[in-house]
Design a protein around this nucleic acid. Structure first.
Length: 371
DNA sequence: AACACCGGGGTCTGCCATTCTC
DNA sequence: GAGAATGGCAGACCCCGGTGTT
């Protein structure tokens, strides 16, 4: 298990204003909180409150999130602080970690050492773990069951994921670690069942394919995944083998969306295309050719289609080459404008130029301008 | 050279509800 | 019955380039 590591770079996925929303939400919430939540009940441990304040912890946040912790007499805030600092966390990080997941201070030094050692079986440096902790304290601290964690690591390793995929799984969805072993096993069983029910011959390979393409599957409910598979099956009317292929391919990317979101987005796509004179079959063609279209928010999708149409791209061309929808609005607008300036004819030349990489697009544009 | 096809890369938490445990 | 542990939820893309074919 010690070889489960490969370096990976971390950049982005839309982090949906979550943190800023929480902050503003907090400010708004605080002004309306009942007195007991801002001042605290009388049975809180005063010396603990002092300790936390000294450490820079946001006690109001603690009181709001896990008030029971403040009533405890035996806590380990200093031990936790020293422990995390010895691993490279800054004082601010520690304060933020405790503020966001107060129960962290109830973990003993021995427990922390053990848990860290287990995480280190997957991550090769303390710094990587510190970064994840700073991002998501709950993933590390929510469970106190180290034996379960150990079993989870063994189980996830036994799925036969390549080291890169396993590392990515636990970097991007560290909550997987804190799931009960049973929960993770249930999801894997569900995926195997889906595969077998669709006539697949290699359920293990299917599980690996799904997890490799969508790291979030294991932190979703089986109800959600099951619902989405059923929805795709019923809506797209594909044969079992075609659906199996879809799920192992780009279809995996939309499996973790909420059932309702998937349904609503499909309806939006359908409504938009039908209003443009397309047939029901063409709606399905679009989704099958490019399942991630279900991921795109309603407004974004409408804007992109409108923008392309305004730039003289035909909706039928979009259906045939839906990958163009993957590009940002800004990018599409820019390209359409540049192409318009040189009189590019989409009807004659197709829309392939729109979904090429920037480098290829620029090179092509240069050639066309030079002619 | 130009194009189409295709798959790769990166990427998630903080909260609430329910169940468990003491 | 309180606090701890665990399960589940909402939210909502973009870009690059290898390779085979003509």
């Amino acid at each position: 298990m010690t070889c489960i590591l490969t370096l990976l770079h971390v950049t982005r996925r839309p982090i949906f204003c979550k943190r800023t929303c929480v902050t503003s939400h907090l400010t708004a919430l605080h002004s309306t909180l009942p007195k007991s939540e801002t001042q605290g009940p009388g049975n809180e441990n005063e010396s603990l409150l002092e300790n936390l304040t000294t450490l820079g912890v946001d006690v109001r946040m603690v009181r709001r999130r896990q008030p029971g912790v403040l009533k405890r007499f035996a806590t380990n805030e200093h031990g936790l602080t020293h422990f995390l600092q010895s691993k490279g966390a800054s004082q601010e990080m520690v304060a933020s970690i405790i503020s966001r997941f107060p129960r962290a201070i109830t973990r003993s030094g021995e427990h922390l050492e053990q848990r860290w050692e287990l995480w280190r079986r997957v991550f090769k440096s303390d710094g990587e773990i510190v970064n994840i902790l700073a991002r998501s304290p709950e993933s590390f601290f929510r469970s106190s069951d180290n034996a379960n964690l150990k079993e989870n690591i063994v189980f996830l390793g036994s799925l036969g994921l390549c080291s890169k995929d396993l590392y990515r799984l636990l970097t991007t969805a560290p909550r997987t670690f804190s799931n009960s072993l049973e929960l993770n096993q249930q999801m894997v069983e569900l995926l195997r069942d889906v595969c077998l029910s669709l006539g697949g011959k290699d359920p293990d390979q299917f599980v690996r394919a799904i997890i490799s393409r969508n790291s979030y599957v294991l932190i979703r409910s089986t109800k959600r995944i099951k619902g989405n598979v059923s929805f795709l099956q019923e809506t797209l009317g594909l044969s079992s083998s075609k659906l199996l292929e879809l799920l192992q391919g780009q279809g995996a990317e939309v499996l973790d969306l909420s059932n309702e979101y998937l349904l609503n987005n499909f309806r939006d796509i359908q409504q938009k295309l039908l209003s443009l004179g397309c047939s029901q079959d063409e709606v399905k063609t679009l989704v099958v050719k490019y399942p991630p279209v279900l991921y795109i928010s309603r407004e974004n999708l409408r804007n992109k289609i409108d923008c392309l149409q305004d730039g003289s791209v035909n909706i039928k061309q979009i259906i045939q080459k839906p990958k163009v929808l993957e590009f940002s609005m800004d990018n599409l607008k820019r390209r359409l404008k540049e192409l318009q300036e040189i009189g590019y004819d989409f009807e004659k030349n197709g829309i392939g130029i729109l979904d090429s990489s920037q480098r290829r697009f620029d090179a092509k544009l240069l050639r066309l301008s030079g002619q």
